[in-house]
Amino acid sequence: MKKMDVDRLIFYDGDIYDAYLASPCLFDTDHTTEIDRVFWRERVKECGDPVLEIGCGTGRVSIPLMEAGFSVVGVDFSQSMLAQARKKTDRVEWIQEDARTFNLERKFACILAPYYVLSYFHELDDLEAILKNCKTHLKSNGKLILDIPYFSPQFWREFFENMGLVENLREFVHPRTGEKIDTKFDQEYDFERQIYSEIIIYHFPNGKVVSDRLEHRIYFPQEIKAILKYNGFRVDRCFGNYDSTPFQENSPHHILVCSHWES
């Protein structure tokens, strides 16, 4: 992943992103409720201050953590997303950096990578660079908490049943132009590369149609545990959803709480 890959997507235009996620969705989503934010707050309570969020976007997680009394730093390499976050508050330290290379010269009790942030990095070298960077920035007893995509057997059944079916997703109002934009959803999976693509198709009132392709690298449960192990992390706990239930076969999420090995 390169910086330009995010900057060219409509989805990662900061104020469009917020308007899009605030609109009613055809599919159930945790991002329209409070349950996910409660989950992250509880995990951070177990770790303490300070907190670093990688891929903080427009502040959906960082800002509630700050409001709960934590000292929070948010890192993202999208200038547009951070600009939107800064409009909301200056009480979080917003930093524009690449997750693979940032150097804040300080350590954190908790580092969060919510909402599939790491899945946007498709190459093993990139993932290992991020893990090395996280290890450098963690206190000796600190925790790294990763939320990565998990596709259950139930997901795959539905995926194959609906293959080739483009579905209505949501309608939202463009925050700068006031246009109503209709969006549709398609999906693809590259089995060789383990890349799942979410395709968002934007239909503008003037007839213009634009597509975003959000590509996620899928790490299977034992695969990600092995990668973490050989990069100096042990997995302490696994959650399968934001209600804190344990990870299991048909969980909608795979959230791993990790400690780094002492050198």
Rank of each mutant, 00 (worst) to 15 (best):
K3A: 13
M4F: 12
V6S: 04
I10Y: 11
F11V: 02
F11R: 02
G14D: 03
D15L: 05
I16C: 07
D18A: 01
A19S: 10
A19D: 00
Y20C: 03
L21Y: 14
C25K: 15
C25W: 12
H31I: 09
F39A: 05
F39C: 04
C47A: 15
G48S: 05
E53G: 09
G55F: 02
C56D: 03
G57L: 02
G57K: 02
T58R: 06
G59H: 05
G59A: 05
S62R: 08
I63M: 07
P64N: 12
M66N: 08
A68G: 07
V75W: 04
S80E: 13
M81S: 04
K88N: 00
R91A: 10
R91C: 08
E93W: 06
E97L: 03
T101E: 09
N103Y: 03
L104K: 03
E105F: 10
E105M: 12
R106Y: 01
P114Y: 08
Y115G: 01
L118H: 06
S119H: 04
F121Y: 14
F121T: 05
H122E: 12
L124A: 10
L124T: 06
D126A: 15
A129R: 15
L131R: 09
H137W: 02
S140C: 08
S140M: 11
S140A: 15
D147Y: 03
I148F: 08
F151I: 10
S152T: 13
P153A: 13
Q154L: 15
F155N: 09
R157F: 11
F159I: 08
E161Q: 14
M163F: 13
G164T: 11
L165P: 00
L165I: 12
L165E: 10
V166T: 15
E171N: 10
V173P: 00
P175R: 08
G178V: 03
E179N: 02
I181F: 01
D182I: 08
F185N: 06
D186Y: 07
E188D: 14
F191H: 14
E192N: 13
R193G: 00
I195A: 07
I195C: 05
I195R: 04
I195H: 06
Y196K: 07
S197A: 10
E198Q: 02
E198A: 01
K208M: 09
V209M: 14
S211V: 01
R213C: 00
R217C: 07
Y219H: 12
P221T: 14
I224S: 07
Y230L: 03
Y230N: 05
R234V: 15
V235I: 13
F239P: 00
F239K: 01
T245Y: 08
Q248P: 02
E249T: 15
N250Q: 13
H253Y: 08
V257T: 04
W261Y: 13
E262V: 06
